[in-house]
Structures are given as C-alpha cells and as structure tokens.
Amino acid sequence: MVSRPNERRSGRKILLVIAVVAVVIGAVFGYVIGLVAPGVFGQIELAGTTLFSPTPSGFATYGALATAAALGVLFALVHVVSRFDTDAR
C-alpha cells in the first residue's frame, strides 16, 4: 500500500491497533504460561474470591484483562493530561 503525502492517520486509531495487539500478546503469553507451568501457580484471587483457575484459558483471560486494564488506565491518564495541553489541536 502506498501512502499519500497529504493523507493523515489518526493517532487514536494507531493507539487502538497497538492496544489490541498488546492485549492479544498478553493473552497468548498467559496461555503459554498456563501450558508450560501447570500447577506451579495457584489460583488468582481477589479479596478471597477465586477469579481465575491455573489453566491455560484462565491465564489467557487474566493476561488479556490485566493488559487491557493497564492500557486503559494509561490511555485515560493521557486523555486527562491532554485536556490541559494548550498547544493540542
């Protein structure tokens, strides 16, 4: 695909693609960890409630959700800070 000099790409779309790729990578790493090290890790708990069991699908879900939550917080902070930028368009 040839890009045109006058064509502008939206920064939001680029960040969305990067975020989706990162979440997929987090899920894949979680799945691989669940396959390679079954039984090494205990259940993932929050306030005494079991959230995820130590299975490949459980770790994949945890990896995807943890990555999405971390990126969501970072993107929200950038959004809030950008409101105070006087040079922003």
Results as ranks from 00 to 15, higher is better:
73 V>H: 09
5 P>Q: 08
43 Q>R: 12
30 G>T: 00
75 F>M: 14
82 S>R: 11
21 V>S: 09
35 L>S: 13
3 S>V: 14
64 A>G: 02
71 L>E: 01
33 I>F: 13
48 G>D: 10
8 R>H: 11
30 G>Q: 02
74 L>H: 10
30 G>H: 00
43 Q>W: 01
26 G>N: 00
40 V>R: 15
52 F>L: 01
8 R>A: 03
29 F>M: 11
31 Y>V: 07
39 G>H: 11
75 F>P: 03
33 I>H: 08
32 V>K: 06
84 F>W: 04
65 L>R: 07
68 A>K: 07
43 Q>I: 03
46 L>Q: 10
64 A>E: 00
21 V>G: 01
27 A>I: 00
67 T>D: 08
28 V>C: 04
29 F>R: 05
89 R>H: 10
11 G>L: 12
36 V>I: 15
7 E>N: 07
72 G>D: 09
15 L>P: 05
6 N>Y: 10
64 A>S: 05
19 A>W: 03
86 T>A: 13
27 A>N: 03
88 A>N: 04
27 A>H: 03
82 S>Y: 05
55 T>M: 02
49 T>W: 04
85 D>F: 00
61 T>R: 01
43 Q>L: 05
25 I>E: 03
71 L>R: 01
4 R>W: 05
41 F>Q: 03
5 P>R: 14
14 I>L: 15
33 I>Y: 11
87 D>I: 09
37 A>W: 15
80 V>Q: 03
28 V>T: 11
70 A>Y: 10
84 F>I: 01
75 F>C: 09
52 F>A: 02
